Amino acid sequence: MVGVDDVEAEYQEIQHACDVAKQVKHPFIRLLTRSSVPPLTIAVLLQVFQQFTGINAIMFYAPVLFQTMGFESSASLLSTVITGTVNVLSTFVAVFGVDKFGRRKLLLQACVQMFIAQKQQRDPFGGTKDDRISKQKSGGGRGVSSVHVRDVLRVVVGAVGLADPSETFPLETRTAGFAFAVSSNMLFTFLIAQAFLSMLCHMRASIFFFFSAWILIMGIFVYFLLPETKGVPIDSITERVWKQHPV
């Protein structure tokens, strides 16, 4: 826990909680109990939001997207490399910011900025190929910049989306719950990766309205339902989070 100088008492509490958790013989069955529904729901929905807001779809198909915007092959590959570099650097921002600012604040500001960035991403996809090339020559850098902005924000959403499930489950179901969350993440990553190109061909610029709608839903969900776990010891999550949750 951040800010604790004397860790011995904290360590003993965690050790005791771990010993109690080991006595649970069927943690996956325990996940189906009523008390486990809130953290399980939050853990799964965070993975859905991660993928359906276009986080990994943009990264997986970045060269295709840049070519669709009107870039040449070499320029689209270079833009993809820049996007990957921004992704790596922004990881450090997320790692240090998640404990400093809190999970909810980071997610909420990411939702707002991602929603705005979607507008900049939609513009370069409108019109014919000649129109898109013309847009790139006359100021298409806005579309690329919006991809890079989203790249920074996707790391925030991704970091919190995986950090939060590791904290919201009580110790007796934490391992099973986190395994369920990661499995859900992989499942929805697979689904959006398989569907994205078909959606892009049929929806074109409208696909960013689809992503924008999910960003809006995620923002509402975070604001009303996601608890803040910053600074909460892992053995006190039930008492300090779930028993005080407004819903």
Results as ranks from 00 to 15, higher is better:
G141T: 01
A179C: 10
K137S: 14
R122I: 06
Q120C: 15
V155G: 02
Q194E: 14
Q118A: 06
L225M: 13
I237M: 06
R174Q: 08
S198V: 15
V157Y: 04
A213D: 04
S236V: 12
I192R: 01
A213E: 01
R150T: 02
M114F: 06
G143S: 06
T229C: 10
I192E: 00
A117L: 00
I217G: 04
V160P: 04
F169P: 01
I116Y: 12
L216F: 12
V222T: 05
Q113L: 15
D235N: 12
L225Q: 07
V149D: 06
F169C: 03
K119G: 14
A179H: 07
E228T: 08
R132P: 05
K135N: 11
K135F: 15
S134H: 11
V232Y: 06
F221R: 02
V144D: 04
G219M: 08
V157Q: 00
V182A: 07
T168G: 09
A205Y: 14
F210N: 01
F125D: 00
K119L: 15
Y223C: 11
V157S: 03
F169Y: 13
M114R: 02
I116S: 09
D235G: 05
V156P: 00
I215S: 03
G219C: 08
F208R: 03
A195D: 05
F125S: 00
D130E: 15
K129N: 10
T128G: 09
L225D: 03
F115L: 11
Q136H: 08
F208D: 01
I237Y: 00
P170G: 11
S146H: 05
F178W: 09
A110W: 01
